[in-house]
Simulated assay, not measured.
Amino acid sequence: MNKIVNFLGKPRTIENVIKNRKISWLELFYDLIFAVVFSRLTESLLEHQTLTGFINAILTFFWLIWGWGELSGYFDNHGNDSIINILIINIDMILIGLASIFIPEAVNGNFHYIT
């Protein structure tokens, strides 16, 4: 088990502060995914200008922004260049990208595909 942990890398502890930490290109691309999410949400809300559409858009927004906040907080506190951290952010980007495809259905009230 130690060999796997050594190969994948361990997240850094919160006490291990990186001085002059720079944001990586991967983190910037991760934030760009959420620009697409906001765009899809606003386009979908314009198509469904009802109270139900607005509530569904708000629910979808908070669900996706919660995920963004959790992963961003993780990388601020524990992120490093280990393989496991790079896998985590790439898998999350893929899942958020796939979820953004189904945002119009979620705003319309069909949360089946986005979940």
Rank of each mutant, 00 (worst) to 15 (best):
N2P: 03
I4V: 12
V5D: 06
N6F: 03
I14G: 00
I14C: 00
I14M: 00
N16P: 01
V17D: 06
N20T: 03
S24V: 02
S24I: 01
W25M: 07
F29Q: 02
F29G: 12
F29K: 04
Y30H: 13
D31C: 10
L32M: 15
L32Y: 10
I33V: 15
A35K: 02
R40W: 00
T42N: 00
E43A: 06
L45D: 00
E47R: 09
E47Q: 08
E47G: 00
T50E: 07
L51V: 06
F54H: 02
I55V: 12
N56K: 11
A57T: 11
I58S: 04
F62W: 04
W63V: 14
L64H: 14
G67E: 10
G69V: 07
G69I: 12
L71A: 10
S72F: 10
G73Q: 08
F75G: 05
D76P: 01
H78Q: 03
D81Y: 05
S82F: 08
S82C: 15
S82H: 09
S82Y: 05
I83K: 10
I84R: 14
N85K: 04
I86D: 01
L87P: 03
I89A: 04
I89D: 06
N90H: 09
I91V: 14
L95R: 14
L95T: 15
I96P: 00
I96K: 12
A99P: 07
A99I: 13
S100C: 13
I101G: 06
I101H: 09
I103G: 06
I103C: 05
P104K: 11
N108V: 00
N108M: 14
G109K: 08
Y113G: 01
Y113I: 05
Y113S: 05
I114Y: 14
